[in-house]
């Protein structure tokens, strides 16, 4: 807890995993297509291997440790 309350970041970088985004955003994927967030929190792929780009699908967990973000 901080002096004025709780830490509540808009963006959370998960070690070895996705980037969490709180709130409404439009994300452009690597091919230039845009995707609007649909949930209170969204997980953006950081390992590049998700089959559901730009969103995380958990694939980072089956990568060797050196290939995780």
């Amino acid at each position: 807890m901080t002096e004025h309350g709780f830490e509540h970041p808009d963006v959370i970088v998960c070690p070895g995993g996705p980037l969490l985004l709180r709130g409404e955003h439009v994300v452009e994927d690597a091919d230039g297509n845009t995707h609007a967030t649909q949930r209170p929190v969204s997980a953006v792929c950081r390992c590049g291997k998700s089959a559901d780009q730009p969103w995380c699908d958990g694939t980072h967990k089956v990568l060797p440790a050196r290939d995780r973000p």
Binding site: C14, P18, L20, V41, S42, A43, D52, W55, C56, D57
Partner: peptide, 13 residues
């Protein structure tokens, strides 16, 4: 697939 990729991070962290 998509929802629980978020939810696992929230549940654990």
């Amino acid at each position: 697939v998509e929802a629980d990729a978020v939810h696992e991070q929230l549940a654990v962290r």
